[in-house]
Amino acid sequence: MNLLIEAVQWLFSPERLEGSNPIPVRIEEHLFYTFFAVIVAALIAVPLGFYIGHTGKGRDFAVGLSGAARALPSFGLILLLVLLIGVTQVQLQLATITAFVLLAIPSILAGAYAGIEAVDRRVIDAARAVGMTEWQILWKVEVPLGLPLLIGGLRAATLQVVATATLAAYVGLGGLGIYIFRGLPLQRYEEMLGSALLIAALALVLDGIFALIQQFAVPRGVSAGRAKDVRTSSTRRRAVAAKPAQERRG
């Protein structure tokens, strides 16, 4: 318990705002790596996922990809890419962000296509019957209905990258992991513990924000319908299909 108090003292000491390692700068780096990688990954994975979900083509490829990617150790991937690309500051950033993007793609891809795939086929047939074009079906029916699962995919990807970004300090890239890697050889446990608390808090806050966004992403018509059938049938039976298992790697 003493150690915890020291850790909190370390965290809130005014020295944390100055010197070569101010916490706000490290948080900024951490968030920059995270969001940059997730956005790049989303630009690649979302259109691909929509295509797979809408046409049903390449589904096996996507399932296989997310299965295989799960086994990939993120720490090894970062180090591998750094040795491949190079060790100047710019190359380091390129290498680690590439690793983060690769780690983020499978979750986002799965969220995008699973969201569209989960839309009731009758709804899509109805949309086609009233004369919507394929493009309209995608954007006005499938995407809004699949949005919660897509955001779920973005949420999982963000958490993976936030966790993995902690390891970026090992190759000298900053982020919040730097305090753990600096404290480790010096046995400064208050520093390691204080920063671990901060890292955990950051991940929890991001997760909370995504949880809120996910709530708002359910289209109004759908949430109204959903509220109704909670009363008439058991909520338990439906739980499986809508909640794919997740994993962590960082």
Partner: peptide, 9 residues
């Protein structure tokens, strides 16, 4: 498909 990743919902 058990291998889906996604929402912790």
């Amino acid at each position: 498909a058990p291998a889906l990743e996604g929402a912790p919902a």
